[in-house]
């Protein structure tokens, strides 16, 4: 059976959930072969094997952390040469998309980014994408070379399917471009203790109506009562009330949770682009004309400063 390369997204060997989703999708096309770059391969290998990696190609070198993107392109290119895969799947992170793009060019192969689903087709994998602010769903395939496809988080549920996960060393020779951009320093993002925004089953977001950084405590309290991630509209981020890393929308994160709670968000196209593929949407807004109400499964026209705390209390009561 053909093999499918999956580039592992991890933090020091702790494998992030989207990688497990990619392994699950890869099995529809062939046998997943994971590519683990950087430290922590031993820790990662057992998880990767559990989710179906038949082999785990590993390489560690200071270049992966010290220089931007290109060393990883060199490594995945080496993995492609070693494996001759039927496709290469890469997580749709900022790094992932740039790695995939450069790899596709080197392989003279087609590129599809931000797939939300993947199936096997007669002429190679077929990728589903959500485009034009989720106004359209397209299905596309690569017509030349080795398909290189980046896949968004939450595209499928990770399913365990234990495989051998044999660890093999990958030989990587770095090219002259690899050391072009130096990572002078790296400051890890402080953990909020909440689920990752793009991976969360429930997202609670606040917008202009929250009216101040200090009031985001209300949004956070509701999120914590539901075990949710916290998001923010561009208006709230631009106003400096919440960090850009939490922005949901066209220029921020695209989320597709089981439940999206929009508080004080009008629902401009910019925001809708980032959340309208959510399974269930509910909203609280004092303006009954707000476009967000066109999207919701359940909406409350009212003041979020009374409705949100009441909701939080009721959630806590019901959860006991």
């Amino acid at each position: 059976m053909a093999e499918v390369l999956v580039l592992v997204d991890h933090v020091d060997g702790s494998v992030r959930k989207p990688t497990l989703e990619l392994l699950t999708l890869a099995r529809r096309i062939g046998d997943p072969v994971a590519v683990h770059l950087g430290p922590g391969a031993d820790e990662a290998a057992s998880v990767l094997a559990e989710y179906g990696a038949t082999r785990v190609l590993v390489a560690d070198a200071p270049e992966f952390a010290d220089y931007l993107v290109v060393p990883k392109v060199d490594a995945v290119e080496a993995a492609v040469a070693a494996v001759s895969p039927a496709a290469v799947l890469v997580p749709s992170s900022s790094d992932g998309k740039e790695i995939a793009a450069r790899l596709a060019l080197r392989l003279e192969s087609g590129l599809i980014t931000d797939a939300v689903d993947l199936t096997a087709g007669d002429e190679g994998p077929v990728a589903t994408q959500s485009v034009f602010a989720a106004g359209f769903t397209t299905r596309s395939r690569i017509t030349r070379g080795t398909p290189v496809i980046t896949v968004k988080p939450n595209s499928t549920s990770p399913e365990a399917a234990p495989a051998a996960g044999a660890v093999e060393q990958l030989e990587v020779a770095f090219g002259e471009l690899a050391t072009g951009t130096t990572v002078v320093s790296r400051t890890p993002r402080a953990s909020t203790g909440r689920p990752e925004l793009t991976e969360a089953a429930i997202v609670v977001s606040g917008g202009r109506g929250v009216n101040g950084a200090e009031n985001f405590a209300l949004i956070e309290a509701l999120a914590d009562s539901l075990g949710a991630a916290v998001g923010a509209s561009r208006a709230a981020v631009d106003a400096g009330w919440y960090p850009h890393a939490s922005q949901v929308g066209q220029t921020g994160k695209t989320v597709s949770p089981q439940l999206y709670v929009a508080a004080g968000i009008s629902g401009a196209i910019q925001h809708r682009a980032g959340m309208q593929t959510s399974k269930t949407i509910v909203a609280v807004n004092k303006d009954s004309e707000a476009p967000i109400f066109e999207l919701v499964d359940f909406g409350v026209v009212g003041d979020l400063f009374t409705v949100v705390p009441a909701l939080t209390d009721e959630v806590k009561n019901r959860k006991g």
């Binding site: 933090v11 931007l68 992170s93 900022s94 790094d95 072009g180 951009t181 130096t182 990572v183 002078v184 320093s185 790296r186 400051t187 890890p188 993002r189 990752e196 850009h244 890393a245």
Partner: peptide, 12 residues
């Protein structure tokens, strides 16, 4: 460069 996991200072 503000990434998902870290903020990086870059130079080239």
């Amino acid at each position: 460069r503000d990434g998902d996991a870290a903020s990086e200072q870059l130079s080239a």
